[in-house]
Each structure stands twice: as structure tokens, then as C-alpha cells.
Design a protein around this nucleic acid. Sequence first.
DNA 1: CTGCTATCATACCAACCGGTATGGATACTA
DNA 2: TAGTATCCATACCGGTTGGTATGATAGCAG
Lengths: 223, 223
Amino acid sequence: MTGELPTDSDSAKSAVADRRAHPRSKRDQIVAAAIQVFLENGYKATSMNRVADQAGVIKATIYSHFKDKEQLFTAIIEELTIKKIDLNYEDLEPLMLLSPDVFIDQVSNKFSVLMDDPEYLKLFRVMVGESERFPELASIYVKTVILRGMDLATAYFDRHPELNIEDSAAMAHICAGSFVSLMTWQQILGGKKLRTLERERVTKALKTLICGGAKNRGKEHLS
Amino acid sequence: MTGELPTDSDSAKSAVADRRAHPRSKRDQIVAAAIQVFLENGYKATSMNRVADQAGVIKATIYSHFKDKEQLFTAIIEELTIKKIDLNYEDLEPLMLLSPDVFIDQVSNKFSVLMDDPEYLKLFRVMVGESERFPELASIYVKTVILRGMDLATAYFDRHPELNIEDSAAMAHICAGSFVSLMTWQQILGGKKLRTLERERVTKALKTLICGGAKNRGKEHLS
DNA sequence: CTGCTATCATACCAACCGGTATGGATACTA
DNA sequence: TAGTATCCATACCGGTTGGTATGATAGCAG
């Protein structure tokens, strides 16, 4: 949208120009600041003044790049959602060939990265907190993050009939949901200060569940 | 709920006195209104004026019962958390004797009630959304709601060694977490409009996982 | 009837909100 | 050098916020 011609031939002239020299463009400055402030405080508790201060920019500059507070919020959440995930899900196709044990380990490790990323935790918190006022954003999040991961795990279970899994989508949900809920109550709700449950224990229990009983499933008692 | 001493000897004197006759106390009126408004809008987006209007009460009356906006919020969230749960977990001890299939069904049904209760969904949303600004409230929620349910399921698995469950707490988390995460992305984030995953499918998959492979678990390959 | 307490209605406060206007400084373009 | 576009600083706008003050009205206990 905004011009990308980089400022190549300029050197720092005045103290003001110095600060204006390195950052890519004002828009990027604003976006970076908005991400920080919105993720920290949520939508309503974030003031445009604070975003402007954080960005080292005057308020009018923000409004020359974004129409609204709402549009700014929407823009940064969309960008954040899509960026964070496209980076995480691009090379996961070969995972299909892994053994179940290793596959679950890989899934667990992916979640480990998310659970220890403060920015992702904040995004999740804001997403849930504002999901009623910004349902379209929540939909983007579900599509980009949740369904994508679910589909991947579903596909894996579909291609591994030796696991005797009847409902691959439900199983994919159980796997992913175990980690998501772990993140929710341990990290976001601060439960790990009250009782720690290590991700590794959940991972191991899942592996035992899925791999350990494969042979016996489906043989006995149709509920 | 509202007052039982009937207003016997008085007839409607003024229009104001009429409205003051039946409700228990002003405080209950305020709390009820605050619950509604706070759960709908979150902390920052809730104005004391709106709470007062909703309660049919003047703003100063609120401040004669509660010191702060913050204290009012804290009070209603605490009350809501404790009330909602004490009601749900009082008679669950005999569940220990049920068969695994039936136990999981019962757990699933308990979650069904929560997932279809709009007030509980809102409470969860607000809880997550405000968990950074009100960490003590989040702790209360974890202790009262999450750990309680986890402990119950953990105890169940501990008393059922025939299931061959190595880590009962991790297993309890997987069960509960599957339902919590289902609620999160289906109901709260609105994902059910994009893809429906019925609670029954998750329940069935869990039962198959836990009961179906009990015999084979622990026999082979110590990872 | 006399206080006392609780609530009423209204008005007010300083602070902040999202958003705009003005007018000067800076930089690149030509 | 003149022009154009961006961003700066500041100040302003109407509206809303959390919270308070005042003074009237009602119910109740003595």
C-alpha cells in the first residue's frame, strides 16, 4: 500500500533525521507499536495516544495510515495471525511419513514453541477476549491456526490405518486440544504457579494412548 | 429469590416506593446488573453508568456498597466462579464407582451443560481476557474450576488400575482439556460456524482410547 | 415526633477518549 | 529554487470515564 522505495542515499543529518533514518517506514513503526500495546491491553483499554507514544510518532500520523482504531486493530491482528502461522506450517507435509510416536513428539514440540512465546500467548488471550466484539477476526484465527493444525493431524491419522482410529478428526482434536488447553490453564490463566503439569507428561500419555492400544481398538464391545 | 416478607400493610404509596418494595436488597440488584454488563463487555469496556442504569439504581448507590469499579468486578467474578461451580461439583463423589465408559459419559455431560450455558461461556471469555490484569481472579478460577475437575478425574483413574494408566493426572488433563478446548474453539471463537465437531464424537473417541486399549498398555516398548 | 440510614435526582469534577485542524519543519523531486 | 508530500508539535473538539458532592425524600427505630 505505502511506498517501498527505500531511502538509500541518505545519511543522518539532524537528530530528528537520525531517528527517521533506520526504521523501514512509519507504517511499520506504527504496526510494531500497535502490536505491543494491543496485545498487552486488549482493544478497549488501548489508547491511540499510547500507541503513538510507543511508536515515537504523532497521533495524526497513525490516522494517515489507518482510518480507525478499529481498522488498526483489525490490521495488526490479521497480520499477526497470518504471519505467525504461515511461518509455522509451511514444511510440515513430510511429517506424514513419520511413525506415530515421532509425529506426536513433533506436534508437541510445535506447541512448545507457541507456549513459550509470550507474543503468541498474548495473541491468544486477546483473541478469546475480543472474540465477541470482533467475530470476523476470531474466524480468521480459527481458519488460519486451529483448522489448519487439525487438518494436518486428521490427514496423518487418515493415512495411518494401522492405528485403528475410527474418527480421525475427533482424534486430531484430542491431540491438539490437549496442548491448547494445557497452554490455557497453565500459562494464560497462570495455573502453573498453583500446580505444574509438564507438557512432556501430556505428550507421553498421548503417545501411550494412541500407540499402545492400537491393536485392541475396534475389536470388542461396540458401545 | 426476591424477598419473601410480603408487603402486607402497605399499598403502593408512590411510584418510587413501589419499586423499592420487593427486591431483596440494593446490593443484590447491583450485583446482578454488574454480572450482566461485565460478562458482556469485559472490564474496561464496562461503564459504571451502564451498570447503574441496568440495576435501576443511582451511581452513588453502587459506590456506597463497593469501593471501586475494580472491587465490584472482583466481587462479582469471585461470587460467580464459586457459585457456579459449587453447584456443579457437590454430588460427584459416587462417580468413582462407575465403569469407565459411563464415567466419561458423565464428564461429557457435565461439560455439555457448561458449553450450552451462555453465562458460563462469557465468564470463561472474560476470565481469559482479563487474566493478565486480574491474576488473582484467574487463580481463583483455576483453583475452583479447573483443578477441582482435574482432581476428580485423577482420583477416578487412580482407583481404576485395570485401565493401565501410567500418569493419571496427565490422563485427567487430556479428558478435561479435550472438552475445554472444544468449547473454546467451537463456541467462544465461533468455530462451529466454520466446522462443526460434535461433543459426542470427542466423547466416543475418548472412550475408545481409554477403554479400548487398556490391556495392551504398558506391555510393549518403554519409550 | 425525632433522628438515622439508605436511596433518590442532579449536577459536577478532572482526566482521558477517539479523532481533527493548523501551521511549521524536513526531505525528496524536478 | 520551487514544489510536493510527509511528519512534527500543539492545541483543540465533543463525548465519556470513574468518582464525588449536595440536598431532597422516604422508611424505620426510638
